[in-house]
């Protein structure tokens, strides 16, 4: 298992039916991502970046091809098993934050643990630590509408990491933020990567994408360019 990559896609197809026509959102995609990598996914709008991320996050299933996560074929798992994998191995960060408006910052951060049935004492400990780590301690009791965009995204990142996932999937995490705040959010994500979490970020912004160790360029559902193409294929 030494050489087993974290993520291995082979021959992945994702076809959407739009009326009579078919849209190939992903076409014959082969991709390997090792544990601990920092990958930027770039490309024009509609090129399939979000579709790829949803697939990697087990929110969606490919029409063809296989997806192996940590050596296990996850495309054939039951919905319950997939939910478990999402809960334990994957953290999502969205462009529009996706915080639950009626819950406080602390409650939003605790949500994945609540869903997983983590004991309250353990929850409190981890939430307190996360609030400290992301400089949100004095915002713990605030609802999302009382927080700035940057604070909201920090809550979302805290929530994505609270279950200590193996991989963080971020779909344009800075898309709704100004430049300075976006930089700060990227720094937080990069810090996580520094601690060994695999980071996959979709971005429009070439400058932000350039900060990653590896860039993937997508067009029309195909992988056109991989900055680590030199990596040996098996």
């Amino acid at each position: 298992m030494m050489n087993e990559p974290l993520i291995a896609l082979s021959g992945v197809e994702r076809v959407f039916q739009l009326g009579d026509s078919e849209v190939h959102a992903l076409h014959q995609l082969d991709l390997r991502i090792d544990s601990g990598e920092y990958v930027a996914v770039m490309g024009p709008s509609g090129s399939g970046k979000s579709t790829l991320l949803n697939l990697l996050g087990l929110l969606d299933r490919p029409n063809a091809g296989t997806y192996r996560l940590e050596g296990r074929d996850v495309t054939t798992l039951s919905p319950e098993e997939q939910a478990r994998v999402r809960s334990e191995r994957i953290g999502f960060v969205f462009q529009s934050f996706h915080l639950v408006p009626r819950l406080t910052a602390a409650e939003n951060i605790a949500l994945p643990m609540v869903l997983a049935g983590t004991a309250p004492s353990e929850r409190r400990k981890r939430v307190d630590q996360a609030l400290k780590d992301y400089g949100l301690t004095n915002r713990a009791g605030h609802r999302p509408n009382e927080l700035s965009g940057g604070q909201r995204q920090r809550v979302a990142i805290a929530r994505a990491t609270i279950m200590q996932p193996a991989v963080i999937l971020a779909d344009e995490p800075t898309g709704n933020l100004d430049r300075a705040t976006g930089e700060e959010v990227m720094r937080l994500l990069e810090e996580l990567n520094g601690k060994g979490v695999t980071l996959i970020v979709v971005t429009h912004d070439a400058a932000l994408g350039a900060r990653a160790q590896r860039q993937l360029r997508m067009e029309d559902g195909e992988l056109r360019q991989d900055s680590r193409q030199c990596a040996p294929r098996t």
Partner: peptide, 16 residues
């Protein structure tokens, strides 16, 4: 709907 989608992304099963 959007909240339900989020809950699923955060690992909630259909049963939950």
């Amino acid at each position: 709907t959007s909240e339900i989608g989020l809950l699923k992304a955060l690992g909630a099963t259909g049963g939950t």
